[in-house]
Design a protein around this nucleic acid. Sequence first.
DNA 1: TTGCAGATTAAGCAAAAATTAAGTTAGACT
DNA 2: AGTCTAACTTAATTTTTGCTTAATCTGCAA
Lengths: 221, 221
Amino acid sequence: MHILIVEDEKGIMDFLKQGLEEENFTISTATDGAEGLKKALELSVDLVLLDWMLPKMQGIDVCRNIRLEKQNLPIIFLTAKDTVQETIEGLKAGANDYIKKPFSFEELLERIKIHFRSKDEITTLTLGNITIDKSQYKTFVDQKEVILTQREFELLEYLIKNKGKVCTRTHIIEDVWDIHFDYDTGVIDVFMNSIRKKLNLTKERELIKTIRGVGYIANEI
Amino acid sequence: MHILIVEDEKGIMDFLKQGLEEENFTISTATDGAEGLKKALELSVDLVLLDWMLPKMQGIDVCRNIRLEKQNLPIIFLTAKDTVQETIEGLKAGANDYIKKPFSFEELLERIKIHFRSKDEITTLTLGNITIDKSQYKTFVDQKEVILTQREFELLEYLIKNKGKVCTRTHIIEDVWDIHFDYDTGVIDVFMNSIRKKLNLTKERELIKTIRGVGYIANEI
DNA sequence: TTGCAGATTAAGCAAAAATTAAGTTAGACT
DNA sequence: AGTCTAACTTAATTTTTGCTTAATCTGCAA
């Protein structure tokens, strides 16, 4: 995971950089607002730690500009001042979190982890009474294990990850089968069929719905 | 969006409930930990505001238990104490955010919005009490789902996108059916009919008007 | 009142999806 | 290596869905 630190005080920068590197994050740095913005947009950064007071461009403006381009990049403000008004301003500008100096490194670390939590660390996903465990490649219906093959598992995982969103056939073939050209056999149907059978999904318990002409969608009932 | 507030002090509860209802959130409440946990798991909640000190079960245990079942449900702690250690504990237990009492309502609101930011928006369109969600291919009338076929959905989407503008038959056939030559069967009429029926559009609730000799227009009343 | 545009309805039909079975491949075991 | 088995893919068949057509009905306007 790649973190960009934008901070002009060398002491704090070194402290952060060293601490986070020890936690196995990849670190990039910038010491003024303009440079920070540039790097945030150009590098493939996963999270930004952003000082409030910066040379060249205020932190809040950097934040706003990042948001214009990257809507999902988490931004955490580091601020010396602690006025409520500033906090609110920062959040409105698109920051995801806010931490007051002096802060404990441990707290910062936890807050950083929050933003990565959803990404990949969670190994179990659920859909209704179905639970899948990525780390063990196991599937359960009402706590009872059901044996799925690898493809079946991957397809189910994909649907659950995108719970509530329609998965088009094209996307499924691309993301689950990794086929990047026009492709149409009945593979998806066949797997969908066997998943439904194994998981006991009937017309009444329709956790996976077919969207005719489009694809499929997983949904709690 | 549905928020569950778990808080035992009546004053704070009322303050939160009222304030958030004014912002058009749907609110459920619980006054002790056990009840809070139960509701968090049973109701279709989108976010939890969780007090730290609670009767029956401490907030942090409620948090841990929610996390076991629902990995993606955002939890914000409300806490009177402000020790760093507690904050860290809360975050480790799976909370997504942490706000210290007394807090400004505005800050709380911003923090809540952060968690909804990525979610919906953009994909939903509305016309009166009708809402359509493109990402789910779903249609709601007064929050209750109505099943439309794909063509019906596309036609409705087209009308809502052009809300307030007249859609001529020619344009509809071109843009929705993708037919680029002179064409006249009753297809549009047939679909308009079934849409109106499914959405309960009567002469009185005429969200979609017929412009005789021209086409149709969608309009809030 | 008559004619025309639109609304309504029902039926035929074609496309999509579900299902089943058979063929193919890859990995495990002897 | 050869055989066996499990998993994946393809293909063929059946079922379902919903789009379209066409025929009829309704109501407004000349």
